[in-house]
Design a protein around this nucleic acid. Structure first.
Lengths: 229, 229
DNA sequence: CCAATAGTGTCTATGAGACATTATGGG
DNA sequence: CCCATAATGTCTCATAGACACTATTGG
């Protein structure tokens, strides 16, 4: 089969956009206006243009449907879903990206959307998602949870400057666990290239003011931070 | 943009088929007969059919171009490469799978292929690969190497029954390191659900006969086997 | 003083890794 | 006996985790 005679298919990108909202691990969903799956909640997505790279298409969806610029959003390809029949409109192969960002803004209305909002991941059991998006979400959230163990990605959920306690609350929210504050502090500050200490102190919250840190140059976490406790 | 007006593209699967040949970590490449990249080495691949699932297309390529059945080959999606211009024939989005198998057979000739052979991964620096396949190979091999650390996938490189020494040589070949035989033995046999001990003994090779094991039911490795030493 | 949060110290259990030792087969 | 490989034991060091303790702010 040659490139000319090969079947051609629509290629889409779907985004699992994750952030922390009011301390809860949350994902952006849009409510579909038109069929199929009218009124159902779905992942933001769109078709890839003829001369557009996959990651550029993902950035465009981030900008259009979530009003998010390229800065301060981490984007990573997760997996491609292409089962025939996953979309009743025809054969659509969807390349799924996960996006992580700090304190992302409330979404605005888009063209084919009549509602868009952040959902806490823990509350997703109560809603039905369009297409195979429940499965997609599951895969992407698993990926995010496990990447926090052995990469420095947790800092992408925080503003430029943050405290160790804020960082610990990221892990606690994403993993749904409680971590020992003392042990976490030691592990986070001793992990090479994870954090850089700043001079300032955080605004006071009723206790001893915390030191401020920013993300270090490292991408991998050595040793990893384990989910065990 | 609706599903009908969306641009349609050719979708391909490319396979990074990995095995151990004569103790060396090796990948199957085919030499292209026709342009583009005529005479160059490339990953086995093919276009996805109109009503075919992505993983089914990968299995079909395994059968057609590598004469490999579904049994005893582990298949996992790695990433999708879709940059415009990555293929001079037009916009082709390629979903890359990695396949791991035990002592895979010598390849047979295919339709658009005039040579196919196993290459030791360490020898790949000396050849030029077609398209963006060098980059694809790099990503897939990194994935395989790191998955050996925290999953039980190493056993997919071995026959049904094997000894601890054979398992250790898998790790040594894939990682390109030497491992302490005693420490490896202890870690492998104590990792829960990794191995199941059998009654028999291996054929003798000049020393004390080794016990035989088979792969256990576990998929994750706890604790992980680290590449450190 | 107390409350609250930040950060450090201490203790124990466990695993990694280096290396020695024993076990079990064939010349 | 020797050799070769398999399997286990021992020792040291590092880290995880539980938890106690000190530090630093405000009221």
């Amino acid at each position: 089969m040659s490139a000319e005679t090969a079947p051609h298919m629509a290629v889409a990108v779907d985004l699992v956009i994750l952030t922390l909202r009011e301390g809860r691990f949350s994902v952006l969903l849009i409510r579909r206006r038109s069929d199929p799956y009218g009124q159902a909640w779905a992942l933001p997505g769109g078709f890839v243009r003829a001369e557009e790279d996959l990651v550029d298409a993902a950035q465009r969806v981030l900008a259009d449907e979530a009003s998010l610029g390229e800065d301060r959003v981490y984007l990573e390809q997760v997996r491609t879903f292409g089962e025939p029949g996953r979309d009743p409109r025809g054969r659509i192969v969807s390349v799924v990206f996960m996006a992580l960002g700090a304190d992302l803004p409330d979404p605005v209305q888009g063209e084919d959307v009549d509602d868009a909002r952040w959902w806490a991941v823990d509350d997703l059991d109560s809603i039905d998602l369009a297409f195979d998006h429940a499965r997609i979400l599951e895969v992407a959230i698993d990926r995010a949870r496990s990447k926090l163990e052995y990469t420095t990605l947790a800092t992408t959920f925080l503003p430029e400057e943050f405290t160790i306690s804020q960082l610990r609350r990221v892990y606690e929210a994403v993993w749904g666990t409680r971590l020992d504050a003392g042990n976490f502090h030691r592990k986070a500050t001793r992990s090479a290239c994870f954090l850089e200490e700043l001079d300032g102190r955080a605004a006071e919250t009723g206790g001893r003011p915390a030191r401020l840190f920013r993300a270090g140059p490292g991408e991998g976490l050595n040793p990893p931070l384990l989910r065990g406790t």
